[in-house]
Amino acid sequence: MQISFLLFPQVTQLDMTGPAQVLSRMPGAKLELVAKTLDPVPTDAGFALLPTATFASAAQPDILCVPGGFGVTRAMEDDATLSWLRDVAEGAQWITSVCTGALVLGAAGLLRGYRATTHWASHEFLAAFGAIPVKERVVFDRNRATGGGVTAGIDFGLALVAAIEGADYARFVQLSLEYDPAPPLDSGSPDKAGAATLERYRAMVAKHAADRPARYRAAAEKMKAAAGPSPRP
């Protein structure tokens, strides 16, 4: 099972490393971290990840996964990145994302007519890319699988393992990772976080990514112009 994760500058590493840890436990799994070059890729956590393959050298994946992060805006605007995604998606068994990686898939035209989810703060933009927004932690639609924000990548990984290897094997992987969440605080969604915490998050986004909505919409318009009318689901 060939699994390829896209890397790009300012990726959220847990979007990738969470599901990578889970998916790597499947029989015969082989993971590649794919980027434009083999140069270290800075994450939004302050450290870098090392790609193992480039767009030119990467193997055809059975599972394609796109993580999210503050760097998705540039990834959505990068023609080489979108071209590689479209090319390998044609031969992939599963086309997947975690967090705002869904918007990169959307910019490549790969979510048109598919049910999908993403991080709660970007959920409203899914429809602009022709996706059908669903507010769930993990969403499957045919061979598309999308996970919500960051930590949902572990749930996404287990759900994908269950779809491929069966629920019993997924339970074995969950046990091996001791994935038994018991968060010390209860503010992991906008409904639970409280007004002050929610406003603090929105202020942070406004400070560091104020142009994000406009760039999302521009990427959606570019995709639509290139791809034509959206297909029916």
Rank of each mutant, 00 (worst) to 15 (best):
A209R: 06
A214F: 01
I164M: 12
G71W: 06
D155S: 04
R215Q: 03
E90G: 08
A226M: 14
L7I: 07
H119D: 01
A108R: 15
G149R: 08
S187A: 11
F140Y: 10
A45E: 02
M1G: 11
D186H: 09
A92T: 01
L14E: 02
L177N: 03
K30R: 15
A131Y: 07
L177C: 02
F55G: 09
A56G: 10
L110N: 09
D15P: 10
A121N: 04
V104I: 15
V72E: 02
A203S: 06
A209D: 02
F55T: 05
L126H: 03
L85Y: 14
A182N: 10
G91L: 07
D79F: 03
Y114I: 04
E32M: 08
F140H: 12
D180F: 04
T73G: 04
V88Q: 06
R202M: 01
D155I: 05
L110W: 06
A209T: 01
D78F: 09
K222V: 14
V173E: 03
Q10Y: 10
D39P: 02
E221V: 13
V139Y: 08
R142C: 04
P61Q: 05
Q10G: 00
S24A: 15
S176Q: 12
P213Y: 01
T12E: 02
A102M: 04
L50H: 13
V104F: 03
R115K: 15
